[in-house]
């Protein structure tokens, strides 16, 4: 049984974003998810930061302060090796969930 919940989904989106873009700050992650999903998905900005800090504590992502292109200080996140492994797992789980839900819908 795939273990996926709402929090898992935020994790998946954030990890995937970082895998695709390399290094990004929180605001950039919000924008990326919005554009990459054709405006279909919006991460609630208030929920993003607790998730980022939790994932950092878990060692899936690492953070460092750097300047943005507009010369503003921001905290940049990037995937660690453990994060990459975790992402694979979460992706697999998510696909299973989607498959499962589809099967249910077809059956109905």
């Amino acid at each position: 049984m795939a273990k996926t919940d709402l929090q898992g989904t935020v994790d998946l989106l954030v990890l995937k974003t970082l895998a695709q873009t390399g290094e990004l700050h929180g605001y950039g992650i919000v924008l990326h998810i919005q554009t990459a999903s054709d405006e279909l998905l919006r991460v609630e900005e208030g929920s993003l930061y607790p998730a980022l800090h939790r994932m950092e504590q878990n060692g899936w992502i690492s953070a460092s302060w750097a300047l943005t292109e507009t010369n503003r200080r921001a905290k940049y996140y990037k995937l660690t090796a453990a994060g990459r492994k975790h992402l694979q797992e979460v992706e697999k789980n998510f696909e299973q969930l989607v498959k499962g839900v589809r099967a249910m819908l077809r059956y109905a």
Partner: peptide, 16 residues
């Protein structure tokens, strides 16, 4: 302090 800074920078980026 870092958490404060990080959230503040987010809000400022959105504002600009």
């Amino acid at each position: 302090q870092e958490i404060d800074d990080e959230l503040q920078s987010h809000i400022e980026m959105r504002m600009s």
